[in-house]
Simulated scan of single mutants.
Amino acid sequence: MKLSRHSFLAVLFGTAALLPAAAPAQPPAPEIKQALVGKWRHQTMLRTADGQALPPQPSGGAGVAEFRGDGTWSMQGPGAMSSGTYRWLDAKRIEQTLEQSTTRLEIGVASIRYVKIQGDHLTLTRVQDRKEIDKLMPPPAPDARRPDQMIVTNVFTRLPAD
Rank of each mutant, 00 (worst) to 15 (best):
S59T: 14
T44C: 11
K39T: 11
L89R: 13
L12F: 12
H42P: 01
T157V: 14
G79S: 05
A110F: 04
R130F: 11
V64S: 07
E31Q: 13
R158Q: 01
W88C: 02
G77N: 06
K39R: 15
T97S: 06
A62G: 04
P160Q: 05
E99V: 10
A25E: 00
F13K: 00
Q100Y: 07
A53H: 10
A10W: 09
W88R: 09
Q100I: 08
R68A: 14
K116L: 10
H121C: 07
Q43M: 10
T72E: 08
G60H: 12
T44S: 12
A161S: 12
L136Q: 07
Q118L: 06
L12W: 06
G51V: 08
D134Q: 14
M1F: 11
M150N: 03
D70E: 09
H121I: 08
R93S: 03
V127H: 10
F67I: 00
D143W: 14
Q96A: 15
Q149L: 05
R158Y: 04
A144H: 06
H42N: 04
G38C: 04
T157F: 10
A10Q: 13
R87E: 05
R130M: 13
E106K: 02
V11C: 02
G119I: 08
E95M: 15
G71Q: 05
G38M: 04
A141Y: 07
F67A: 00
R68Q: 09
T102L: 02
R146K: 09
G108L: 05
A21D: 00
P139K: 12
K131D: 06
P78V: 15
V155L: 12
P139E: 06
F67R: 14
A21L: 08
R130K: 07
A10K: 04
D120I: 08
I117F: 10
T48G: 00
N154G: 06
R68S: 13
K135Y: 13
R5D: 01
L159I: 02
D120P: 10
L159K: 01
E95I: 05
K131N: 01
R146E: 03
Q52M: 09
S7E: 04
F8C: 03
